[in-house]
Amino acid sequence: MCLAIPHRIVAITDERTCRARAGTAEVLVRTDLLSSVQIGDSILVHAGFAIEKLQEEDGRELESLWEEIRALEATLSPEPVSDFTDISPGMSDGSERMNHA
């Protein structure tokens, strides 16, 4: 529900404000909700406030989950699983399904 965009801090303005970049845009961001920030931090910003520092994801955990899913799928479908083009229905199919949602 809440739009939040990653930014990178380029300057600390005062004890509760920093300048941060999202893409090519530079904006003032409030840092009240974080205990400490420094230049170079990657932050997640919602409605002008940093709500969390972003950290490197632990790729191994996701990768192992991925392996698990892959292994599970292999036990389910002996034939190669369908790809996007096969399961991508036409416009009317897609819209029909949206109607049910």
Partner: peptide
């Protein structure tokens, strides 16, 4: 870009920035 398809419709009313 992921191969999904969606409808492009005319916007209704003024474009407003959103938080959600």
């Amino acid at each position: 870009h992921i191969g999904g398809r969606r409808l492009v419709d005319m916007p209704v009313g003024e474009l407003l920035p959103r938080i959600c």
